[in-house]
Nucleic acid binder design. Structure first.
Lengths: 181, 181
DNA sequence: TAATGCATGTAACGAGTTACATGATTTG
DNA sequence: CAAATCATGTAACTCGTTACATGCATTA
């Protein structure tokens, strides 16, 4: 149950319409919590019904008409409650690792190219994060809020760094006698 | 659509009953693809109907009676197909990062303890993986299949190492002027 | 006025989660 | 033989995904 809270956070940062939220879930917040526009509209409907957010007045209610939302006190309270609540990390779930394990049983045909492809994707993502860091967090003393956002961004950077290193090493080691299994 | 393939992999490694699979999905394969017994029984039913696996003969069909499955050629072929097929990595989805971002908006009350708690959990997981590495992969030349499994395990080790380092640094940096937001 | 893009939705499905139900086997 | 445990399942629900539908605004 995190999507509603992701939306509340995004709306507190800036009141938005469904489509604007969708765009922001393609970057920024979306870097660590993605969502499609269908999910977002469904959730906006729920949050409005429950009184956590409201459509800004002067926004027509018809279809095809832009509709901006803002967070109500109840919504902010719920977000604060959820943020402070203990939550265990979710167990890892990764298809690439699963496929390597499967490859040990049915053969590693074509796995090398797939590893190289993933390495390339992770390198691009890493470059994107580093670009954001240069742009948004120049080396100065940050305010507390910025420091929190910076720490989050660095998780992304460190994670992509981990993947590129691990993939590089995996490609080397599996390449030695590579090919089939 | 990865659970059926995880099950096929597990069954190829060793024919098993539903409960045995459930146990193995609590460790081993479960370290990077977890599943509950309800998911597993449902999926075993589907795989059997589709002719990918079959119950070993001499296994009663009644409830409460142990029932072992083995993979049929069709199942192995499907697993090989899926393993070789290109698949993009899934975007990151992490509630702790989301909560840090939310904390920048609604206040960071209690976040420090949560970070320390997660650090402890990740350290334990790391220790568990390292123990497995010592036990199952002593420093010798591995066969190709073992090398694949070793690479997968090292992904787990490196990933937990990343989390412990990132959390340690985050705790330091947020601690400096810590507390509220 | 037809096409394109912006904006908000519906419908149907699949995967994962939680709670519960039932039968068989061991053991106190 | 009662209780605990092993083992297999059902049911209901939530969340995420895919495909499609509808209305408004601009512009070629």
């Amino acid at each position: 149950m995190s999507l509603p809270h992701a939306i509340l956070t995004a709306l507190l940062e800036k009141p938005s319409s469904g489509l604007e939220l969708t765009r922001r879930f393609d970057k920024s917040i979306g870097y660590f919590w993605s969502a499609t526009h269908q999910q977002i509209y469904r959730e906006l409907g729920r949050l409005e019904r429950e009184g956590a957010i409201r459509a800004l007045p002067s926004q027509g209610a018809t279809r095809g008409q832009k509709k901006e939302y803002e967070v109500l006190p109840a919504g902010r309270a719920e977000l604060a409650r959820w943020t402070a609540e203990p939550q265990d990390p979710k167990p890892l779930r990764d298809t690439l690792l699963l496929r390597l394990r499967a490859a040990a049983v049915v053969g590693a045909e074509g796995i090398q190219e797939e590893l190289r492809r993933h390495l390339d994707l992770h390198r691009r993502q890493l470059a994107e994060y580093e670009e954001i860091e240069r742009r948004d967090f120049p080396p100065e003393k940050d305010a507390v809020e910025d420091r929190l956002r910076h720490v989050v961004l660095r998780a992304g950077i460190d994670l992509e760094t981990f993947w590129t290193r691990w993939l590089t090493r995996a490609i080397e080691e599996l390449g030695e006698t590579a090919g089939a299994g």
